[in-house]
Design a protein around this nucleic acid. Sequence first.
DNA 1: TGGCCGAGTGTTACAGTGTATCATCACCAA
DNA 2: TTGGTGATGATACACTGTAACACTCGGCCA
Lengths: 162, 162
Amino acid sequence: MHDHAATHDHGCGGAEEAIARAERLCRERDLQFTRLRRDVLAAIAGQTRPMGAYDIAEALSEPGRRVAAVSVYRALDFLTEHGLVHRIASRNAFISCGHSHTDGAGLVFLICRNCGTIDETTSPEVEDQLGRTLAKAGFKPTSRILEVEGECGACLGRSTED
Amino acid sequence: MHDHAATHDHGCGGAEEAIARAERLCRERDLQFTRLRRDVLAAIAGQTRPMGAYDIAEALSEPGRRVAAVSVYRALDFLTEHGLVHRIASRNAFISCGHSHTDGAGLVFLICRNCGTIDETTSPEVEDQLGRTLAKAGFKPTSRILEVEGECGACLGRSTED
DNA sequence: TGGCCGAGTGTTACAGTGTATCATCACCAA
DNA sequence: TTGGTGATGATACACTGTAACACTCGGCCA
Ligand SMILES: [Zn+2]
Ligand SMILES: [Zn+2]
Ligand SMILES: [Zn+2]
Ligand SMILES: [Zn+2]
């Protein structure tokens, strides 16, 4: 696990893979991977850029089936709780997770302000230093968010080559 | 600067000090430190816990003077832009800054889930490691947020002693 | 003096995000 | 059958943030 150092594809064809992983995980933990939860995950995993809850609700609604935002939120609660999607606090949006970090240690979100893509990476070194800093401050952490905004490698390459 | 390693008091009597610092900074940079901006800063600096924009609006409103949330947001934009207050993304709330970190490097917010207090500290080591991680990922950062939730030193002491 | 212009503010309306509450349905067990 | 549990549907509501426009108060210049 965590054999990705830099970037990785969030969905964009990996939607089926995300679904498969979710099905497996839910079977193992005896959880219900319902249609709504599957559809919500599929909607997110089919995108590189993050989706808001209302975007998802709209994407899933068709003539004859109206998916309310509140239902989407419940599905998102389930999915985030089990590490299948991540919530991006600075964007009020969600992305699907392609990894199996059950703990979420050292997680870093890389948000490109140019193309809107969000990649995630992990850094045990950062986590380690942060742990030291918190210990020094006498603070006992239970969870944390680390989100970086900037320009992704792809956009940097594009801007220098032309 | 940054001579505080662990915690520091956010306001709670330091309100006047925050105002004084703000006045100085605005004079130096030729900015307008208007009544509304001063009042908003005072309201935040008088609290240990973060305040929402609507909380502030309510706190500043009196019979005869109604402060609308939109005005508060404008003042907050000004104050955050010049580093006088910080926005806590995971809480949609604001705290006053007692430091003079003009760059905001290595900033870490410590949010106590028990008493609600938010302290800030800085960690060049974390910043350093994070910079390395980002460089390895080919990502050029422009800004970042790092917010840790957990239990603060004071609450830990209280819970063990009794 | 009088008109112009820009920054700050007041006001209203609206968009976006998230939750509370209750009713309903499917499923499984007693 | 009956009752309990978990998921969903549906409505309403609270909270967060922004757009648009009018107004005031300065300073500046013809
Ligand atoms: Zn992930
Ligand atoms: Zn990009
Ligand atoms: Zn600060
Ligand atoms: Zn505490």
